[in-house]
Design a protein around this nucleic acid. Structure first.
Length: 550
RNA sequence: GGCCCUGUAGCUCAGUUGGAUUAGAGCGUUUGACUACGAAUCAAAAGGUCGCAGGUUCGAAUCCUGCCAGGGUCACCA
């Protein structure tokens, strides 16, 4: 139990004692939360519980606060006082933070990783169609998703990441037809390019590679036979390219789930359940999901009048499969352009008899690229868009990931390419990495000079305001992990580690490490060590590298 | 028109679910700091009617209602 938990337990006890003594009326109070006050004069942490329960108890907040403090055992604190309209401020004994700092260093690179909470979560993200290269929008999903997976793991969840491969259906047929058309064109034949075909240059490259390898071997084959052969070739190639792009972007999946495995059995059995539950009906030769029963604008076709299942059919079967795997929580990360889709999928889940509230769909807003202050135009239709691979090439994985993650999902993201690739003080990524490299440099110099500090450190020598601020920042890290994970908000870790780096730079500029008295130097080195571990831990969550030299 | 997201400093954005006479970062602007551990740094200044108008209460950038502006989306496409 850490000190905050102890205080909360004490407050709860005090509430109960007051109720038993008849001072407070019999009533439930809201959950007790501790927060860090905006100014250090208001203590190390504080609670507003007296104000929150004022309405419930029909008592003045200050009176409630007084009675609470009377019943609390707080010898382990330096001071407890009532302030403002009814805040209770707690002041730590100065030696507490030093003890906690010593614990931080003892935990080494595990500090920030919380104990297993037994909750099984699946995160499905990217899941882009394997019909072409990933573009920057996918990049945001990939960076966010992988950071979320890392964050949840750090917070003690059991996490499995998954990529859903849309390797069945019309878009794959289009892919095959597009490759076929390019193949014929390259061999000097006339070919009608499919109406909804993929115009990207990568399709031509795929066709060219086939020719490089096999020449005109397939030219005299029947069209449909050739197309179905090219389908497999193209799919394999696109998937390999996806994996490669993602891997270069520090994104890895535990499971690659193929849509094909759902056809036809899983789709059929899901439909049977829906029919049995009267959530599906036939009209105009098609089978419809009664999604309006669950708040959708209209019912949705699951099986077309020609008997071919829609995309929704596969998705229903897919989510059924996910639920059957026994996760406590399912997270889908989708582009905001799919938001209308959420309702019908949840409708299907409920209609199948599962609990749709277990599914959390996180929608990410659009990404716009800016170069020289101007919007970089993108068009998916003509294949003229900036790919993820090009972005990585231009600004690097670290900067790209950090820029994608540092904003909340709900905000449309303006990605400033010039800022991301500037190797200067303008760039927040380098600011953080620089702090890390600086610390490494200190230890490197000590090692080179053969300096060893002996004897136990006296951390109470760390009394400068920059030292205290840095220590407190480090100590707040586990709470930051906990709350960011609870809210699926990895961008808070990005902000946190930037603030941590700032606290370190301030400390570094004010306090010398090498060259001061040995006990003080040793204490400061321990502070450096703790800072280094936390920066590394946080950057690992973001999927950004921690270079020892820059 | 329905639904979703956004509107906070010149620009890009935080603001941990309603808290503290002073709403925070970064960039940009201005002024200082390297004969000592990495100046990719630090210290400080200027910069705000939190889109507008009501409402809820001890207390609102945060919750409710109505407007205004920008973006997204409304398929037997995926």
């Amino acid at each position: 139990m850490n000190i905050q938990e102890l205080v909360i337990a004490e407050i709860k006890k005090a509430v109960k004692k007051n109720i038993d003594a008849g001072i407070f009326p019999q009533a439930e109070i809201p959950a007790i939360k501790l927060e860090v006050p905006p100014q250090k004069e208001y203590g190390d942490f504080a609670t507003n519980i007296a104000m929150q329960s004022a309405r419930i108890f029909h008592m003045a907040p200050k009176k409630i606060a007084e009675e609470l403090i009377k019943q609390m055992d707080h010898d382990y604190l330096a001071k407890v006082e009532i302030a403002g309209p009814g805040f209770i401020n707690f002041y730590l004994r100065s030696d507490i933070i030093y003890k906690e700092l010593a614990d931080v260093v003892k935990k080494g690179n595990h500090y920030g990783t919380l104990t297993d909470n037994g909750i099984k979560v699946q995160v499905e993200y990217v899941s882009a169609n394997p019909t072409g290269p990933l573009h920057v929008g996918h990049g945001r999903g990939a960076a966010f998703g992988s950071a979320l997976v890392n964050l949840l793991k750090a917070a003690g969840y059991q996490v499995e990441s998954e990529y859903y491969i849309n390797d069945a259906g019309k878009q794959i047929d289009n892919l095959a037809a597009s490759v076929n058309a390019r193949y014929l064109e390259l061999l000097g034949k006339k070919a009608d390019f499919p109406e909804n075909g993929y115009h990207g240059h990568d399709i031509i490259e795929t066709a060219q590679r086939i020719i490089d390898k096999f020449g005109d071997k397939y030219l005299n084959m029947a069209d449909d036979e050739r197309i179905s052969l090219f389908k497999e070739v193209a799919l394999k190639e696109k998937l390999a390219a996806l994996r490669e792009d993602l891997s270069a972007f520090n994104v890895h999946f535990d499971v690659w789930f193929s849509e094909r495995t759902l056809h036809p059995d899983a789709v059929k059995s899901a439909c049977e359940i829906l029919l049995k539950n009267k959530a599906m009906y036939e009209k105009d030769g098609a089978k419809w999901l009664r999604s309006t029963d669950y708040g959708d604008d209209k019912d949705r076709v699951v099986i077309r009048d020609n008997g071919v299942p829609t995309y929704l059919a596969a998705d229903i079967a897919y989510h059924k499969n996910k639920y059957e795997r026994g996760f406590d929580k399912l997270i889908n990360i989708w582009g905001a352009d799919h938001h209308g889709y959420v309702c019908r999928v949840k409708a299907a889940i409920d209609a199948l008899g599962f609990d749709s509230s277990k599914l959390e769909v996180l929608l990410l807003q659009m990404v716009s690229l800016y170069r020289n202050g101007e919007l970089v135009k993108m068009s998916k239709r003509t294949g003229q868009s900036v790919t993820l691979a090009e972005l990585i090439e231009e600004v690097g994985t670290d900067a790209a990931r950090y820029f994608f993650i540092m904003r909340s999902l709900d905000s449309q993201l303006d990605f400033d390419l010039d800022l991301a690739k500037s190797e200067s003080n303008e760039n927040p990524v380098y600011y953080i990495q620089y702090a890390y490299a600086r610390i490494c440099s200190i230890f490197r110099q000590l090692a080179e000079a053969g300096i060893v500090y002996e004897g136990p450190a006296n951390l109470e020598l760390l009394t400068d305001e920059t030292e205290i601020a840095l220590i407190k920042k480090i100590l707040s890290y586990p709470d930051e992990i906990r709350s960011a994970a609870k809210d699926y908000a990895p961008h808070r870790i990005a902000n946190f580690v930037h603030e941590l780096a700032a606290d370190f730079h301030s400390f570094y500029n004010k306090c010398r490490i090498i060259g001061v008295d040995a006990p003080l130097a040793q204490s400061r080195l321990i502070l450096c060590e703790a800072t280094r571990n936390v920066i590394h831990h946080a950057l690992d969550i973001l999927g950004v590298s921690a270079p020892e030299k820059m």
